[in-house]
Measured scan of single mutants.
Amino acid sequence: KYSDMIVAAIQAEKNRAGSSRQSIQKYIKSHYKVGENADSQIKLSIKRLVTTGVLKQTKGVGASGSFRLA
């Protein structure tokens, strides 16, 4: 599940300011076997996790910027 992968990526990075979408994508692609549409799936999952309150956006708008666990 992409949401689990995103949470794992943010936990692994341990950046106080949060993790960027690009760094999350890079982590997921190197640690998991994902399909061609992974980028758009990650983007959608990040937006969903922010609206449900699992992630907090520290910089930027939408799916860009930095995110950390709430």
Rank of each mutant, 00 (worst) to 15 (best):
Y2P: 02
S3F: 14
D4K: 10
D4N: 07
M5T: 00
M5C: 05
M5L: 05
I6D: 01
V7L: 13
V7Q: 04
A8M: 07
A8V: 05
A8D: 05
A9Y: 04
A9G: 00
A9R: 03
I10P: 01
I10M: 05
Q11Y: 08
Q11D: 04
Q11N: 09
Q11E: 08
A12K: 04
A12D: 05
A12C: 13
A12M: 05
E13C: 13
E13D: 11
E13A: 10
K14M: 08
K14G: 14
N15D: 06
R16W: 11
R16Y: 09
R16A: 13
R16K: 12
A17I: 08
A17H: 13
A17M: 13
G18H: 04
G18N: 03
S19F: 03
S20L: 04
S20P: 03
S20N: 06
R21V: 15
R21C: 15
R21F: 15
Q22Y: 10
Q22H: 08
Q22M: 09
Q22T: 09
I24P: 00
I24G: 01
I24T: 00
Q25F: 11
Q25R: 07
Q25H: 08
Q25D: 06
K26P: 00
K26R: 12
K26V: 08
K26S: 10
Y27L: 01
I28N: 02
S30M: 10
H31D: 02
H31A: 04
K33W: 06
K33D: 12
K33A: 11
K33G: 07
K33H: 09
V34E: 03
V34M: 05
V34Q: 04
N37W: 07
A38F: 11
A38V: 09
D39R: 05
S40F: 13
Q41S: 06
Q41P: 00
I42P: 00
I42K: 02
I42N: 01
I42G: 01
I42F: 04
S45K: 06
S45N: 13
S45P: 01
I46A: 02
K47F: 10
K47P: 03
R48C: 15
R48S: 07
L49I: 02
L49A: 02
L49V: 00
V50I: 08
T51Y: 10
T51F: 11
T51D: 13
T51W: 10
T52R: 12
T52G: 06
V54S: 02
V54T: 04
L55Y: 01
L55N: 00
L55Q: 02
K56M: 13
K56W: 12
K56V: 15
K56N: 05
Q57Y: 15
T58Q: 06
T58W: 06
K59D: 07
K59H: 09
G60S: 07
G60Y: 06
G60T: 08
G60M: 06
V61Q: 11
V61M: 10
G62I: 05
G62F: 07
G62C: 08
A63K: 12
S64N: 13
S64R: 11
G65W: 15
G65N: 12
S66W: 14
S66C: 15
S66I: 14
S66G: 12
S66F: 14
F67A: 03
F67L: 08
R68D: 05
R68P: 02
L69G: 02
L69E: 03
L69Q: 04
A70M: 08
A70K: 05
